[in-house]
Design a binder for these strands. Sequence first.
DNA 1: TCACTTAGAGTCAATCTGACTCTTACAACG
DNA 2: CGTTGTAAGAGTCAGATTGACTCTAAGTGA
Lengths: 241, 241
Amino acid sequence: MSALESHVALAVSTVIFALRPSVTGEPELVIPLVRRIRAPYEGQWALPGGPLNTDEDLAQAASRTLLETTALEPRYLEQLYAFGQLDRSPDDRVVSIVYWALVAGDEADRAIQSENVQWFAADELPELAFDHNLIVDYALWRLRTKLEYSRIAHGFLGETFTLAQLREVYEVVLRRPLDPGNFRRMVEASGTVVPTGERLAGTRHRPPQLYRYDTSIDLTDQGPLSRLSAPRTLAFTRGEN
Amino acid sequence: MSALESHVALAVSTVIFALRPSVTGEPELVIPLVRRIRAPYEGQWALPGGPLNTDEDLAQAASRTLLETTALEPRYLEQLYAFGQLDRSPDDRVVSIVYWALVAGDEADRAIQSENVQWFAADELPELAFDHNLIVDYALWRLRTKLEYSRIAHGFLGETFTLAQLREVYEVVLRRPLDPGNFRRMVEASGTVVPTGERLAGTRHRPPQLYRYDTSIDLTDQGPLSRLSAPRTLAFTRGEN
DNA sequence: TCACTTAGAGTCAATCTGACTCTTACAACG
DNA sequence: CGTTGTAAGAGTCAGATTGACTCTAAGTGA
């Protein structure tokens, strides 16, 4: 894939978000980056990604490349934007279709960590290859705005969770404390969450109710786009790609 | 650009919206389509578009192809989505990066109309080539949802306009009547609109104030993406491409 | 049994929203 | 020249929503 016959190369990259405990103990928003092992930008950190194969979907390519580089399978995957400025790659012309993904905390622990794959706090990234700083900024902005009007926060959580855990996701992503009472009221009113009947034991206080997401509800209204791949598979990638 | 060396072809298309008076006199939402003059889907209607040149931006390509096919220059242009399903083109593999655009009513009149370029009511389209029906549905959904939380409606209007004209845009796009008083309150509270001091004369009733959009305000919050091309050029394409 | 901590229910005031009323200012018509 | 029709534009009111806050419940650990 080069400018041999003045062709435009097509690549797919993914911005992956996870919540992991920081050094202070509080969770922080992190993204995995891979170190480039060839020019251009050799040695610098970049988003996981790669060229698009002829026999795969865009979302499949996103899933594949991030599985190959980080061993991660996201709970949520959505297209972010297609970047195609002329100068975004020094030599050849590359159009990158970028996806963004959320992975659950336990899943994130399973991720490859190596010399060439590492997690970084989303707010304090090094200087990245290509226009990837801009891409991450945009993905962060989308995550934050989307969190406020849709119900994607559970992409960071496991099957069941307490409202306090869910609230913590919001607090970390939005970088501001939320009133527990008002948060409860908001979530309950949304109707997207169902109590499992079980409670989380072992806390040093009153045991909280465990909840589960109501999978019969469309969590991120993508409009007619849900017609692409099965309605929930686009929003909820789990295993099968 | 074909599957010669199993390459993925890259194309850019645009969904263009305009408001034009229908046969009943009321304005309706219309989009221009071009008739395909070669296989596949020869003879069927499709979105204006074409291959991406090596030396042009994605948005530039969108502007160019729609200028070539329809002679239109949009007041608003934004990326919609990248479509890349395997089966969207029968023979070769094509990834289409689709933009959507708004053109003012007077501009729309200047558009080419011919045997092979025609306007259709956005709600009652024929069966289009490729997956273009899905694309238009999605663009329509985006237009409608975006109209409710941002201030893009003036993309359909000229330099100055009355609140009644602005309200009519909302009513036609959203397909529901809006209370004039509440609409005025909403627009005034948004602060995106400035009275010109002039009034529209010649009506058979009290002459309404003419307004102008406050161009110092970012009308569609694209977040960090505004850093691509000049802040307002992305949102407001006017002439220079 | 008590102290401590968070769960979870509930209150209250400010704000926002939709439905509605009333007055104003022009054109058209007699 | 006054009357009528029409939409502009200001204003009112009740219900819903939202943020700040209080109070009681139900666990653990000392």
